[in-house]
Computed example of a mutant assay.
Amino acid sequence: MEKKNAQPRTAELSANTRRKYTEVKNPRQLRVLHALMVRPRPREEMDRIAGCSNSPSQIASLRGKGFDIPCVMVRSLDCDGLLVYRGVYYLTAADRRMIARHVCRKGA
């Protein structure tokens, strides 16, 4: 039984579908996007780059502006040698296209 208000699955979305994009003006969020354009980044690194101690809040705000910015949990060892999982953020191809369109519109 399918729910009436269910979101379409990724496979059901058209490649030409554009998400609603809200311009990013916050300097912390701009630093986050710039860093993620270079490579995937762990949460701890995003804290230093954004200049705040709660980068997940910045990521949540960017998601609210139309970005996906998935997070994968990667196995890692902490300073005590214990196995932990840490979050690594990355941009999807659609996120990269949104950033490129924004840069082209701005003429930067």
Rank of each mutant, 00 (worst) to 15 (best):
L91D: 00
S76M: 08
V103F: 06
L33T: 00
M1I: 01
E2N: 07
R96K: 15
A6T: 12
S14Y: 08
S55H: 07
G81F: 06
A100R: 15
V84W: 01
M37V: 14
D95Q: 08
H34M: 11
D95N: 07
K25R: 11
R48Q: 12
I59F: 04
V103W: 07
V24K: 02
A100N: 11
C79F: 03
N16D: 10
R18M: 04
V88N: 04
V24D: 00
R43W: 05
S55V: 02
M73C: 09
N54M: 09
K20S: 12
G66C: 14
S76T: 11
K3F: 08
E44S: 10
G51W: 12
R86F: 04
G107E: 03
P70R: 11
C52F: 03
S53Y: 12
T92G: 10
C104T: 08
G81A: 08
G87L: 03
G107N: 08
E44P: 00
P56I: 04
D47E: 12
G51H: 14
A93M: 13
A6R: 09
A60Q: 07
D80R: 14
P70I: 10
I99S: 00
F67I: 04
V24E: 01
H102V: 08
D78R: 06
N5V: 11
E45G: 01
V32N: 00
R9N: 07
K65Q: 15
C52Q: 04
I99N: 00
L91K: 01
Q29H: 12
E44T: 13
R105C: 06
K4T: 12
I99Y: 00
S76L: 04
A94K: 01
V38Q: 14
I69G: 11
C104A: 08
P42N: 15
Y90G: 05
S14N: 10
G51C: 08
C71P: 01
S76G: 02
A35W: 00
K20P: 01
V103C: 13
Q7K: 14
G81M: 07
N54P: 01
R19G: 12
